[in-house]
Every structure is written in C-alpha cells, then in structure tokens.
Design a protein around this nucleic acid. Structure first.
Length: 467
RNA sequence: GGUCCCUUCGUCUAUCGGUUAGGACGCUAGAUUUUCAUUCUAGAAAGGGGAGUUCGAUUCUCCCAGGGACUGCCA
C-alpha cells in the first residue's frame, strides 16, 4: 500500500511514569522503523494540562534513552501545536463536518444516561441546529456519518468493522478552546507524516473515529496496528503490586537494556524458535503483522533467564562499571582498586547472575579488604588438620605461575592427589578463607578472581590469625 | 447495558486443514560437582465448551462461556 518510507511514532502522555507496556510499544515502533529503513519519531501528548508534568516528560526521555530507543528527530510537543489543531477544526466547521454543541455538563450527563439505558451512542441535539451569534459556552463536535460502516484494516487484528451509528460525535475542541486528544493525534500524525500508527490495544476503538477524521480532512488514513496489552503474572492489568511497572524500575533492578529489549520483543512476538537474539536480528526479523493478537503476561523467571543470557555476552569492562554503580548505590565501601577487582571477578561469576544487582552480590567477596573477617561457619572449618593442609596448599600455589581458572583447577586437583584426599576435604575451608563466608563462585574461579597476591594473602591471614 | 478485541502446556510462543501438536522459561528426576550455581540427560505438562464445513480440524464459519479494552470537554 505505502511506497513511501515508513514513519512510526511513540506518543506517550506525560501524566505518569513510563509504563513497561509503553516501553514495548516504543520498541515495536522502533523495530519496525529500523526494519523498513524508516523513521521513528516521538511525540509528547501533553494536551491534558492538568496532569501533564515536566518531570514526567523527563522520565519518558530517560526511559527511552535507557532502552536505547532514541527518536530520529526532536520530540514534538502536542500542546505546542494547538493553533494548528484549531485550524483543522475550522476547516471541518467550514465544510460542515463539525458543529457547535451547547449542551451543558448537566444536560450531557442526562443525555448520556438515557443513551446508555437505551444501549445506543450519545447524540447531541445541536448536531443539526444552528445557534447563530451566540456567545454561550460550547464545544465543537465532529459531525460523523450515521449511515454505513467504518472499517479499520488493522495490521495485527485484521479488518475490524463498526456501524457508524454506534460512533458518537467526539469533541474536537473543548469549551476553553483546547483541542482534544482524538483531534490532536490525527492532525499531528498527518503533519508528521506518520505512515504506521502502532500503539496499545486500548486505542482500537479510537481508530474508527480517527479514520473518520482523516477522511473528513481529506487525508490518507495511515496503517493501524494495535498491540495487545501486557498483563501481570496473574493476568490482571499490570500494576505496582506485580513488582514493577515503570521502565525506570527495571533499570534500577539491574536489567540490561538489551536484555529488556529481547524479552519485551519476545512478549507478543516471535520468530520461530528463537529466544535469545541481538538487536540486529530482531530488526531483521521484525514485522508488525507477526505480532500475536492475545495479551501476554509478564514472567519474571523468563525475564531473568533472558537477561542472564545477555549478561553472559556483555563486555566485562562495561559490567564492571555497572556493578560498581550498583555497589555504590548500596553504600558499599569501595577501595581504590575496586575497578581492577571487579574487572577480574565479573566475568567469572556473571553466568549465575540474572541482574546487575545479583552480579554485585556475587562480586562482593572479591572487593573486601584484608584481613577478612570470617564468619562462624568458615571459622569452624579451620581445624588443626585443615589448617595444616591449607598451609601446604599455600606453598603449592605459591609456585603456580598460570593463574587462570582452568590452570588453577588443575593445580587444585593435583594438590588433592598429592594429599591423597578429595577436594571436599579442604574445599569448603578454602572457600571460607577466600570469601569470608560470602557468596563466591567455584574455587578455581574465586582464586582467579582475587588474583595471586590477594588470594595467597587471604590464605596467609587466616592461617596466622587463627594460630 | 452497548461496541470492539482476545482464547494452544503454569508462562511466552510455533503450527499458516493432514504433525507422536514443536521450542523456550519454570517445574520434577538423574548425572557432574568443593557450597550455591552452571552444564548435561530424562520426564510431566496444552488446543475453553458446543454445533457446522470437510475424507480430515488447533487451524475455516457460527453460537456460548471466560478474560480484556473502550463507552469523558483523560490520553
């Protein structure tokens, strides 16, 4: 249908935080734009002056930036375009496609009640009446067709049909002259050259009225694609009690943006059996028409799994930096050489971490300063026999040149062989000495993460202090 | 109440009339193992209900049920 380059947009309203569902909507718009070589735009729907705040606009920008979904052009403020919206209304007024409605709030309410009781759409009596020269407060309504049907060919849902008589005449301009959402979206999407309106399912009903508006203005109707919403694990609308709902919260919890993108893309869209994929792959594979029709539930376990997979692939230097930030936020005391230490440990423990927060927890043992304070359990493992064995192990390791995990494992095993015992005979004690009792990876990795000097130092500390 | 949307393992999904209904997460069992984890192997687990079309329906049509959205001078 469209030979023109694709233009998509994300159009959140700054009346709250950036919801994870909104994040996914942005992601799908972004993916589709990238897939088609088109443009991805951002428009802030701030026509609700009561509830829109600058702080929320900032939250949207922060969230999108974190997710890596940066628009290709500067964001558009919908409210700033109010003059243009009024212009469009004037055109419809001139062409008899809109009318002034003088219904008071009370009258409207009464009418609404009647209409609802009769199971029909509300109709203003002013639709076919003209009140010339009146200064009375009034809104401007769209004069929609009463006969026939309106069909929206949704890219995801397929053709959806409404009887025009079911569609009420929506308000275009409020009594204070401010444009309403439904009018503003249409005018803005047209002016911004949006070819594909990809948004939440909750707007499906609006799509009918909006296509009528496009037609009244003599504009080409864009393609519509309505994404099913994201629900909580229990199937109910996602809310705070499900753990998190704002994009910022997921960032705080230590999920990686690429992991988030992967998981979100996978929620409601799939490409065969592929579960873990890169942005490049997602871009190459994505098409709105493949989006699933049914709403999906947020699954923390799977999110963790996907994120873990991306953690494994991530650059260790970057992870070290992120881990450091997390530790700082937790109020951990950081030594001067913390970056070096993290750089060494992060790659060795990341496979068992789902988030940066967990990575921080698993790395903690390595950034403690000597001498370590051993916990009860570790102390208890240091009996006479073990102490002597560890002392022999220390000298065994002293001559160890290759301090990589693989080599260390071999060294550990050969030592056990020399001693004529299994690793289990001294492993737990060594672990305690190296970590103080904190979480730590396997022995070889722990030794490697600490580095030869630190590891042997900790060993020496424990052996002499307990003497 | 009305309009519209949705319905495959617990969850995310594959299937595009013919399959032992596949994969992933999670779960269970076993193996590996110095703890936890990782890794490996195996296993349990699904087409909401009812009609119809068809040689044959998860797949097409209709009805019902359940869930959801909208029904604002919010977006």
């Amino acid at each position: 249908m469209s030979e023109k380059p694709v233009v998509t947009r994300f159009a959140p309203s700054p009346t709250g935080s950036l919801h994870i569902g909104g994040g996914r909507t942005a992601l799908f718009n972004w993916l589709y734009a990238r897939h088609t070589g088109g443009k991805f735009l951002l428009r802030i729907e701030d026509t609700d002056r009561e509830r829109s705040t600058e702080a929320n606009v900032q939250i949207i920008h922060d969230g999108l930036t974190w997710l890596g979904l940066v628009p290709d052009e500067p964001p558009v403020s919908q409210y700033a375009r109010a003059e243009r919206h009024r212009e469009a209304v004037q055109q419809m007024l001139d062409q008899g496609r809109a009318y002034r409605c003088y219904l008071t709030v009370e009258e409207l309410e009464a009418e609404r009640e009647i209409a609802r009781a009769q199971g029909r759409a509300i109709r203003s009596p002013w639709r076919d009446k003209e009140k010339t020269g009146s200064n009375l407060a009034h809104v401007i309504r769209f004069k929609g067709p009463i006969e026939g049907d309106t069909v929206v060919n949704d890219l995801i849902k397929g053709p959806v049909t409404w009887a025009n008589k079911e569609l009420d005449d929506l308000v275009l301009l409020r009594s204070n002259g401010d444009p309403t959402y439904n009018l503003a979206v249409v005018v803005d999407d047209h002016d911004m050259g949006v070819t594909h309106v990809i948004r939440g399912d909750d707007h499906l009903n609006n799509a009918a009225r909006q296509s009528l508006l496009y037609q009244a203005m003599g504009w080409e109707v864009p393609e519509f694609a309505h994404l099913p919403l994201i629900h909580g694990p229990d199937g109910a609308k996602l809310s705070k009690r499900h753990g998190a709902q704002a994009v910022g919260e997921f960032a705080e919890m230590g999920y990686l943006p690429e992991g988030m993108r992967n998981y979100l893309a996978r929620l409601g869209w799939g490409h065969g059996d592929d579960e873990v994929f890169s942005d490049e792959q997602a871009i190459a594979w994505f098409d709105v028409k493949d989006v699933v029709k049914a709403p999906a539930r947020l699954d923390w376990a799977k999110l963790n799994h996907i994120n873990n997979q991306h953690l494994r692939k991530a650059d260790d230097g970057r992870l070290a930096g992120l881990t450091r930030e997390a530790l700082e936020k937790q109020g951990e005391q950081l030594t001067a050489d913390v970056d070096d230490r993290l750089r060494r440990v992060v790659g060795l423990v990341k496979e068992s971490a789902a988030t940066i927060q967990e990575l921080a927890g698993l790395s903690l043992f390595s950034i403690r300063e000597r001498p370590l304070k051993l916990d009860e359990k570790s102390l208890g493992l240091l009996n006479e026999e073990t102490r002597e064995r560890l002392s022999r192990l220390a000298s065994h390791l002293q001559s160890q040149a290759d301090w990589a995990p693989e080599a260390l494992l071999i060294a550990l095993k050969s030592f056990a062989e020399i001693e004529g015992v299994g690793l289990g005979k001294f492993g737990p004690a060594l672990r305690g000495v190296l970590s103080g009792g904190a979480a730590a990876p396997d022995l070889a990795s722990a030794l490697a993460a600490l580095g030869k000097e630190e590891a042997l130092g900790r060993l020496a500390d424990a052996l002499c202090s307990a003497q």
